[in-house]
């Protein structure tokens, strides 16, 4: 079984800082990590390889330093990796990103499965997985929280939706986007880290992928950012200290009055 896992390097959410004057995100000096939700995709891919045989290939689109994310994926059990990087890709929205990644996956060759994290914690769109699937004309199974198994070229999964979990079967190849519940990511092993150090990771750019330059980067992106601003935090907290029975009753009364004023109930 050949599995491709697209991953993204993102800034550590906890350390995201804002430039108060411009309202933009300060990226300098911020620690970069593998998108936390991609770890579940890597883990389930490695597990499927362990039980079915085959290989797992990680692919990431980003600046040259995204190679660190790919090396970490190798340390977790991924067999090989490809970096998709080119100045021309800068400013790509989800459409252009999906176009580039889908073409990179095509170049990697035949595959049975593509497994993505449900979304990245920075852009937060969750669109790239389904968009890669659309471009490659694959069925997409989104919000997968359990992989039951594979048999005769089919895969059986659970898909987490609003009212519960759907049980679905799909022909392979197909694309899954997975949520946290699907797996419990392992830590990189010492041997994995050694392998990652030695790994040679090819870089695909616009030339290697033979892409249409009008479809990548800012120019190829249908969506344009008009402005970025900081959300207004208009909340002012009415805080009541309630350390004894009397005070608790008082606090409850005030909560009741507050909720009535807000016309919540």
């Amino acid at each position: 079984m050949r599995i491709v896992v697209p991953i993204k390097q993102v800034p550590e959410t906890k350390s995201v800082k804002m430039d108060e004057k411009t309202g933009t995100v300060i990226r300098e000096g911020v620690e970069s990590i593998i998108n936390p939700l991609d770890l579940y995709a890597i883990e389930i891919a490695v597990q499927l390889k362990e039980s079915n045989g085959g290989e797992v290939i990680a692919v990431s689109m980003g600046p040259p330093k995204a190679i660190d994310a790919l090396k970490e994926a190798i340390a977790m059990g991924v067999d090989s990796a490809v970096l998709v990087s080119d100045r021309a890709f800068a400013g790509s929205d989800t459409w252009a990103t999906s176009y580039v990644l889908a073409e990179a996956i095509r170049k990697i060759g035949e595959y049975d499965l593509i497994i993505c994290g449900e979304r990245a914690t920075d852009g937060d769109t969750g669109q790239v997985g389904p968009e890669i699937a659309a471009y490659l004309q694959l069925p997409v199974l989104s919000y997968v929280n359990k992989v039951c198994g594979t048999k005769d070229g089919d895969i059986s999964v659970h898909r987490l939706v609003e009212e519960g979990s759907e049980i679905l079967e799909s022909e392979m190849p197909c694309l899954l986007t997975v949520v946290k519940e699907v797996s419990d990511p392992r830590l990189p092993t010492l041997r994995g880290k050694q392998k990652a150090r030695k790994a040679v990771i090819p870089v695909f750019g616009i030339k290697e992928l033979d892409l249409d330059p009008r479809k990548v980067g800012l120019a190829g992106s249908p969506t344009k950012v008009v402005k970025i601003f900081r959300p207004k935090v208009a909340r002012e907290c009415e805080k009541i200290i309630a350390r004894d029975e009397e005070k608790i009753k008082e606090a409850a009364g005030k909560l009741e009055a507050f909720l009535k004023k807000k016309e919540i109930l």
Partner: peptide, 9 residues
């Protein structure tokens, strides 16, 4: 910091 009403206890 994001709450409208808080009970401390």
């Amino acid at each position: 910091k994001v709450a409208d009403f808080g009970i401390v206890g």
